[in-house]
Each structure stands twice: as C-alpha cells, then as structure tokens.
Design a protein around this nucleic acid. Structure first.
Lengths: 181, 181
DNA sequence: TTGCTCATGTAACCCGTTACATGATTCG
DNA sequence: CGAATCATGTAACGGGTTACATGAGCAA
C-alpha cells in the first residue's frame, strides 16, 4: 500500500498529469519507488474516487486529453498519517544473492559475466547520484526539506557504493576459484 | 520467477518436506529470499507436475502426512540454466526512503520513533549475521562452496552495516531539525 | 493520409499475502 | 478423550507486470 502515497507525495511536490507522473517515476521518486504508467493511471482513478485528489481544470472527459491532478486536504492528511505510522520492514529479496547460493550447488558457470554487467550498471547509477548531489546539494542548501532530501540521496549513494564494492570483491573471488574449464 | 529456483536450491542442499522448507525459509535462504508455507506448497505442486522434483518415499497420498521431495535431473538442469542466465536488476523499492521523501513535504512528526525501531532491528540482524560468520566461516573453510556462501553472507553483513550507519546519521540529522514542537 | 508521438486507458496473468480448513500425531 | 502441535493444503484478494487498445495533435 505505498504506491498511492508515492503519488500523493509527487502531486504535492507538483500537480501533474498521469504521463508527467510517469516521467517523474522514471527518475527522482522512481529511484526508490518505481511504477509504470498502467499502475499510475489505475491508482489515480482510485485516489480520485476516494476523494484524496481531484482533476484540475475544466472537465476534460476524453481519452487522449491531458488531465492534471492536485491533492485535496483529505489526501494530505492521509499522507501525513501514513508517514508517521510505524511500518514493518520487508524481508530482503535479492535475486543475485539467490543465484550465488544456487551457484554454490550447481556451479558458477556463466554467472561471472552477469556480475560484471551488474557492476557496470551500479557504477553508472552511483555516478548519476553523485552528479545530482553536486548539482542540487551544494552549500547553502540546508532548509529542513533540503536536508531530508539529501539524506535520501545519501542512502542511494551509499547503497550503490556497497554494491560496487561487493561486486568487485565477488569478481576477485571468482578469479581465484577453480574456474569453469 | 525466482521462488521455484530458491526451492530447487534448498532441495538440492537437502531433500525436505514442505514444512521443513518453510522452516529453512525462516532462516538461511530466507535471509535473502523469503516465502510463506502457502507459497511453498503451491510451488512444490507445480514443480512436481512439471517433472522437476518428485515425492520421495512410498505413496503418501493424504493430508497431514509428511511428504518429502527430491530434485530430478531436469530440475538441476533448469536451476543451472537459470543461474547462468543474465537477469535485469529490479528497481529499488524502499518504503522508508519513500516516507522520508513524504516527510519532507508533510512534516517529520512521528517518523523518528520508527527510525529508532528500524535501527534496533537492523542492529539485531547484523549481530545475527556476525554470529553466523564466526560460527560457520572460521579458518579452514575455503572450498569453492564455502567461499561462495561466505560471499553471500558478507553481502548481508555489509547491507545491515549500511542501514545501521545510515539510520544513525538520519537520527542525528533529526536532532538538529526544527523539531515537532 | 500516413505515420509518429503524446496521452490515457483495458485486460489478463502471476506472485505474494491473508485467512481459513483439515487430517495426523502426541501427550496429559 | 481433549488439546496442542505437526503437517498439508484451499480460497480470495491485491499489487506489479506485460501486452494491447484508443484517441488527439502534428508534421512530412
């Protein structure tokens, strides 16, 4: 039950149409909560019929017509409630770790190339986050809001740093291993 | 499509019944791929009808009767194929980071207590991993299989270390913030 | 008028979750 | 015998994923 709250957050930051939201879920918010346009339209419909958001301008009834939404007071209240509520942490589910465990049983053949691929992807993501940090969080950015957003970005940076280091170590380990031949 | 492969891995490590698998998914494998008993039974049924595993002993047809499974050659082959196959990495989906982003908009009231709770949980998990490391991966454990499993455990340790550090930093940040009062 | 892009949707499927059901075994 | 526990399931639901459908606006 987090997608509606992700959308409420995005709409509070800036009222948007479905497609604009989709674009923002490809960067920004999407860095820690991804969503496709199908999910977003479905959820916008629910939020509207629940009275948490409303379509912005004069009635635009049709398909193919842009339709922007803004958050209603009830929506803001719901988001505040959800943000403050205690939530259990979800158990980890990581395919790559699972594959390594499987490789310990059926052999490592073929997996090394994919580790390299993942390493490159994480390095790229890390670089992107670091660019954002330099661009958006220089000195003089320390309102409460800036500091919270910076904190979230730091989590992204540290996570990607972890993965690049761990994958590098994993690949070193593979060089020492008996090898596929 | 990872649960069947998690089960195949577990069954190759040791043939088991549904409930025994469930127990192992509460520790061990469950540390990076969790599953409930309902999922496991459903999937065992599929794997059996697909010819990847088979029930072990004489026909035990009934409910309430223990039923163990072992992996068939086709199952091992499928697991090897899956392990070697390139797989896209799933986008991050982290509720806590989302909540902080929301807090930047609707206020931080109430969230600090939950950060503390999360910190305690991650510290506990970290301690558990470190115990496992000391117990199971002392010197003299460096077959290929040991080293792969140790690598996976290191990922768990490093991830929990990241979260404890990041949450600690986050809580420090909150002490400096304007505060809810 | 054809095709491309913007924009909003529908439909079907699968996995994970939650609640519940039922038989077997053991122990007081 | 009754209750707890072990063990195997069924059923319903919801979110995420994938594939497809439809309309508007614009440009070659």
């Amino acid at each position: 039950m987090s997608l509606p709250h992700a959308i409420l957050t995005a709409l509070l930051e800036k009222p948007s149409s479905g497609l604009e939201l989709t674009r923002r879920f490809d960067r920004s918010i999407g860095y820690f909560w991804s969503a496709t346009h199908q999910q977003i339209y479905r959820e916008l419909g629910r939020l509207e019929s629940d009275g948490l958001i409303r379509a912005l301008p004069a009635e635009q009834p049709a398909r193919g017509q842009k339709k922007s939404y803004e958050v209603l007071p009830a929506g803001r209240a719901e988001l505040a409630r959800w943000t403050a509520a205690s939530q259990d942490l979800k158990p980890v589910r990581d395919v790559l770790l699972l594959r390594l465990r499987a490789a310990a049983v059926v052999g490592t053949e073929g997996i090394e190339a994919d580790l390299r691929r993942h390493l490159a992807l994480h390095q790229r993501q890390l670089a992107e986050y670091q660019e954002i940090e330099e661009r958006d969080f220089g000195p003089g950015k320390d309102t409460a809001q800036d500091r919270l957003q910076h904190l979230v970005l730091r989590a992204g940076i540290d996570l990607e740093t972890f993965w690049t280091q761990w994958l590098t170590r994993a690949l070193e380990e593979f060089e020492d291993l008996p090898g596929p031949a």
